[in-house]
């Protein structure tokens, strides 16, 4: 079977299952007679389109809310990228850095970002800084871990080859260890991004006046299930786009890693 054919068939199966689910949802809503009116898929999509053009709350359309959320994710994610990559790579390559930071890192690592919420609010208030901080925590761990793994798994042959060509320690680190770790850093970035996206929602649900997490909480406050589900739909769509965007970026940056094989 040709590759194109295979892909078309996979798409048909996936799309078919999706449509079947929507159909079941519609049927179930029509057949049940619950006290709380559960929206049909059609109502959710209608509301979603409506939110694109009309404000949810006083100030923003859903696009505006998504942009607010993205700005928070971006800020925390970028700070985590810088610090996490630096810490991970140096811990992976320099035994002293590892000896100093590894124990603290291992102790803090299992503490979920959500556990930091109360403390973060006390420290930073309920504004933007608190959200940046939580997202930073969520992204920092995978960035550090994957950079660390990348630096420790550098091919020793290449290090030897560089030394034989006369490389000093700094050159070995920057010319060999760093580029060799890039694929691993990218897979860390994937995890960091999805962690950030999830943590952002929690942070917004706890306290915010805008953003996609707020849309859901605001829907709950007025018993508007349609708004809540439309908000969830937006989370899914944007999350999907982010993950794919990151994959595209990776493919662009790592041409050497996905050719041949």
């Amino acid at each position: 079977m040709s590759k194109k054919n295979q892909r078309a068939r996979a798409l048909a199966y996936g799309g078919g299952t999706f449509l079947l689910l929507l159909f079941l949802w519609e049927i179930l809503v029509r057949m049940t007679d619950s006290q709380i009116p559960f929206p049909t898929p059609f109502a959710v999509i209608e509301r979603f389109v409506d939110m694109l053009f009309h404000n949810v709350g006083y100030y923003y359309t859903i696009v505006g809310h998504v942009l607010w959320s993205l700005s928070r994710v971006l800020a925390g994610f970028c700070m985590a990228a810088v610090l996490g990559i630096v810490l991970g790579l140096t811990m992976g390559w320099f035994p002293y850095v590892r000896a100093i930071f590894m124990p603290i890192f291992n102790l803090l690592r299992p503490i979920a970002p959500l556990a930091w919420i109360p403390l973060a609010i006390l420290w930073f208030g309920i504004g933007e800084k608190y959200k940046y901080f939580l997202i930073f925590i969520a992204a920092f761990v995978p960035f550090t871990l994957n950079s660390y793994a990348g630096a420790t798994h550098v091919d020793k042959q290449l290090v030897g080859a560089a030394k034989m060509l006369g490389a000093n320690n700094a050159q070995v680190f920057f010319e060999i260890v760093v580029p060799a770790a890039v694929p691993s850093i990218f897979s860390g970035a994937q995890v960091a991004l999805s962690n950030s996206w999830m943590t952002m929602l929690a942070a917004e649900m706890v306290c915010a006046t805008e953003g996609i997490g707020w849309i859901i909480i605001a829907g709950q406050a007025v018993n508007d299930m349609t708004q809540m589900i439309a908000g969830m739909l937006a989370i899914g769509i944007v999350g999907f786009l982010l993950a794919n965007g990151m994959r595209l970026l990776e493919r662009r940056c790592l041409v050497w890693n996905n050719q041949g094989n």
Binding site: D155, Q157, P179, A180, N257
Partner: peptide, 10 residues
Amino acid sequence: FQEYSAMEWL
């Protein structure tokens, strides 16, 4: 070396 030591990213 016996093993190929070309830098894959170059």
